[in-house]
Design a protein around this nucleic acid. Structure first.
Length: 861
DNA sequence: CAGGTGTGGTAGC
DNA sequence: ATCGCTACCACACCTG
């Protein structure tokens, strides 16, 4: 296995090669030679002062094989520095005269290096000039590895590898986030204040506007939105291109967001983080176009779908033309988003985040689960504080019920459409090929349709599929009835999801058996089992009664067995696994039927000859552990023998809060990406407040289009094949402040220097959580967690346990008294809680949020 | 070896 | 068209 560094390096190479490939595809570059001035007169005349930009513009018909590369030449070379410079720039590369150790040169070109230089350049890829020359001759980017100056054996620690990918569309790149800020933005700011200047005077700042570039090129013209209309699209060149470019420019006050909190040095970003025009950041290789050529946007009409398609088709490389080159990711997105339907469902829509979360089933499932977990914990805590009798006899038999709706979404939605119950039905947003099937009824399953499947596949299996829409509100209601029924049973309850729960009813069953639950008394065991079956049966009746839907129940002596029994129980049934059946039952299951075993572990097991659970028993524990790791190995060893030590209802406190979106992400400039990240951080901050926690560590998650992935993934507005990048930063102090979180997140995003158009997914996460305030905990914890899903009257007992009682209490007191400088824009948590109405308005769910309390309180322990 | 970070896998419909 | 979330665990690898 390669190291992460090597893996990233591979990714970079793939990407570089991918670019070369993209560029070759669909365009004829034959005959274009270095300099490539032959087409010059055919091109629009451009007033440019910047030599590199000029050269690029003149030679954009050359294969842009060095796109994404930023080179620096060291020492005497053959060909000369000037010639290499021309070669690189005329083929899409970036060039830096100075190597200040901070800008992200991707390659250093040198014929040879002194030992000292080798050390100095240790973090760069050092290649021979022949790499450039040969690549140009070949018309494609050759692997730089073949032209290493430093021996293969020597570990070249390449700049930026640790940041993920070095090579991006950007001609220059920022240093890694860690390089700029050791721990957080604050510390870097401190260093700045101490006069640690980072830029040698002669070196241009990495992301500053290129000197000599006409100013109007770098500033903004039109925000991209559905409002952007175009009158014509004469191809992707001349005016059409100019339109797009204009639309892609940043808005004028790009740094306004950083200036608004003007209350001290702390809030000002370090100079190198200043927002810069998208042009210099994301589109360095593009020939600049005069804005004067852009007709006023208001004069244009929307494009017809055919026109969009035609444009995108050109992008796909169908038309060989010396004039045209593949669109950049930003150009592509700009065209895509001209389609109002696309714009509405993507980041181009200002209300995107709200709209998205309102419709995302996975978001709902996750938040429901978190809510339920919090409530059940509160309940358990309340219970244990009132009755201290939870003394489980060790070694006694246990009876666990796993209860679950049959095709939950489908069953609930079908109540409105009873005529379809015997027909194949799925729940999905639409019937397009990439629409995901959230739930399918049993008639549909007979065709092989499965949850999570894309519509395209499902329709191939079953052409007469009926698609019903989601009804999240109805699901919540059904769930409430479900949990009412579950909680009416005497036992320990654990929520698995909106429609699924575990109950440990051992106590009841053993009592019914009339023994201590340990000895082998057949009569007792029989009576225990019958009791469990009877409980299951009554739950099924109760839920059917209240919801009109079927639930199935698996019964076993531990969670594992209850879970696998449930598989056999479905649909509309129940199944109890007797102790003497356990080994035979489990043995015939495939390993991927075990909880926690899916395709990845399944594949690993297959490689060592394991397909069925019984095969696991043939392996010794060491073999299993060496293949899967110590924990997983041990767990599967146990599982295969029916052993599962986990208890129902084990309390786990929340360790992270996050918000991410990996669909509909289509930016056409850096500013949009950053604005979106800020919105995500606002959302995250809101969720922190709702959960009454603050976080000390933030992680930014980024998905970027894989080098070999097309611009448009098979799923509409989906993320397609991506590389993922995570970076975390430890904040000096735990916070909920969206401004602070946003700055850090944006800073990390920038440090990668990705082309905004290639971003496909973004997320922010807070960890190292601390409780927010003591007051909060006693007044409204329960409320905050029950705002959305409520099956029970709020308990009088706080739901959250302080993480560490002693220190936390201290911290509460101090933070309460201390007049810490209030950061701009920071909501006062106490204030927030004192005025819950403010919070109530925020929630995403439709309809009145607080569900009627009376209906849900059926049982009081 | 205890601690960190980043990556990957899994679960729910 | 389409709504590919989110919390948690485990692991690999690194540092001191």
């Amino acid at each position: 296995m390669g190291s992460r560094l090597e893996k990233n390096s591979d990714a970079v190479r793939k990407r570089i090669q991918g670019h070369a490939f993209d560029d070759e595809e669909g365009e004829e570059y034959e005959g274009s030679t270095f300099g490539g001035f032959s087409d010059y007169m055919r091109r629009k005349k451009l007033k440019l002062q910047n030599l590199d930009a000029d050269l690029r513009a003149q030679t954009s018909q050359n294969p842009q094989i060095f796109r994404g590369i930023v080179a620096h030449v060291n020492g005497y070379t053959q060909p000369s520095l000037a010639d290499l410079h021309k070669l690189i720039v005329s083929h899409g590369g970036g060039f830096l005269q100075y190597l200040d150790g901070k800008t992200a040169v991707t390659h250093v070109i040198a014929s040879q290096l002194t030992p000292k230089k080798k050390v100095e350049f240790a973090k760069y890829r050092i290649v021979k000039p022949a790499w450039i020359v040969d690549s140009v001759k070949a018309g494609k980017l050759l692997p730089w590895n073949d032209y290493r100056v430093v021996d293969e054996g020597v570990k070249q620690k390449v700049l930026g590898f640790e940041n993920g990918s070095v090579v991006s569309q950007a001609s220059t790149q920022r240093r890694g986030y860690r390089d700029q800020t050791e721990t957080s933005w604050y510390t870097s700011q401190m260093r700045h204040e101490n006069g640690d200047t980072e830029e040698p005077p002669e070196a241009p700042p990495p992301f500053a506007p290129e000197p000599g570039k006409p100013r109007e090129m770098q500033s903004p013209v039109i925000p991209a939105s559905p409002a952007v209309e175009a009158d014509d699209f004469p191809g992707v060149s001349s005016i059409g291109e100019a339109d797009l470019l204009a639309a892609m420019e940043d808005v004028p006050d790009a740094d306004a967001s950083f200036d608004e909190d003007d209350d001290g040095e702390l809030m000002r970003p370090p100079p190198r983080l200043d927002p810069v025009p998208a042009r210099s950041q994301s589109k360095p290789v593009l020939p600049p176009v005069q804005s004067a050529d852009v007709p006023p946007i208001t004069q244009r009409r929307p494009l017809t779908p055919e026109e969009y398609n035609a444009m995108l088709w050109q992008d796909a490389g169908g038309q060989p033309s010396a004039q045209k080159k593949p669109l950049t990711a930003e150009e592509h997105n700009a065209i895509l988003l001209q389609n109002p339907h696309m714009a509405k469902s993507s980041t181009a829509n200002p209300d995107f985040i709200n709209q998205y979360y309102r419709e995302s089933r996975l978001h709902h499932l996750s938040t429901w689960k978190a809510d339920l977990k919090a409530q059940l914990q509160a309940r358990a805590q309340e219970k244990s504080s009132t009755q201290r009798t939870r003394s489980k006899a060790p070694g006694a038999r246990r009876y666990v019920l796993h209860i679950d709706f049959d095709s939950f979404f489908a069953a609930v939605s079908l109540r409105q459409n009873p005529h379809l119950v015997d027909k194949p039905v799925v729940i999905a947003h639409g019937s397009g090929p990439g629409s995901e099937i959230a739930s399918c009824n049993y008639p549909a399953r007979k065709f092989g349709v499965k949850n999570g499947m894309w519509m395209k596949t499902a329709l191939e299996l079953c052409s007469e599929l009926n698609v019903l829409p989601y009804d999240f509100k109805a699901y919540e209601e059904a769930s409430r009835h479900f949990y009412d029924s579950i909680l009416a049973v005497e036992g320990v309850v654990q929520s698995i999801s909106i429609d699924e729960a575990l109950i440990d009813v051992s106590e009841q069953c053993i009592k019914a058996g009339g023994s201590d639950g340990k000895g082998i008394s057949e009569g007792s065991i029989y009576r225990e089992q019958e009791k469990a079956k009877q409980i299951a049966s009554s739950i099924r009746d109760a839920v059917r009664d209240k919801t009109g839907c079927e639930v199935s129940v698996g019964i076993g002596n531990n969670i594992l067995l209850a879970k696998v029994a449930l598989r056999k129980a479905k649909p509309a049934g129940q199944h109890l696994i007797k102790p003497e059946e356990v080994l035979a039952f489990l043995g015939e299951l495939e390993v991927t039927d075990l909880p926690g075993v899916a395709w990845s572990i399944g594949k690993k097991l297959e490689e060592i000859g394991v397909k069925y659970v019984k095969d696991i028993r043939e392996l010794n524990k060491e073999r299993l552990i060496s293949a899967l790791g110590p924990k997983t190995g041990q767990k599967l060893w146990d599982y295969s023998r029916g052993i599962d030590k986990q208890e129902v209802g084990e309390q786990v406190i929340r360790k992270s809060v996050s918000a991410e979106i990996n669909w509909g992400i289509r930016f056409i400039n850096q500013q949009q990406a950053e604005d979106f990240v800020q919105c995500l951080c606002d959302e995250l901050s809101k969720r922190l407040l709702e959960n009454l926690v603050k976080g000390k560590q933030m992680t930014m998650k980024i998905m970027r289009k894989a080098a070999d992935a097309g611009m448009d993934p098979p799923k509409n507005l989906g993320h397609g094949k991506c590389d993922t990048f995570n970076k975390s930063v430890v904040l000096g102090v735990a916070t909920t402040d969206k401004a602070v979180i946003g700055k850090e997140a944006i800073s990390i995003l920038r440090s990668y220097g990705f082309s905004p158009g290639e971003l496909r997914g973004l997320g922010v996460q807070m960890q190292k959580l601390e409780p927010l305030k003591p007051m909060a905990a006693s007044t409204s914890t329960v409320e905050s967690s029950q705002r959305r899903l409520q099956f029970k009257k709020p308990a009088a007992v706080p739901a959250t346990t302080p993480l560490k009682t002693t220190t936390e209490t201290e911290e509460f007191k101090s933070s309460h008294k201390k007049t810490r400088p209030k950061l701009a824009d920071e909501p006062d948590p106490i204030e927030e809680i004192a005025n819950p109405k403010k919070e109530r308005t925020v929630r995403l769910m439709e309809g009145p949020i607080p569900l009627p309390l009376e209906t849900s309180v059926k049982h009081r322990p």
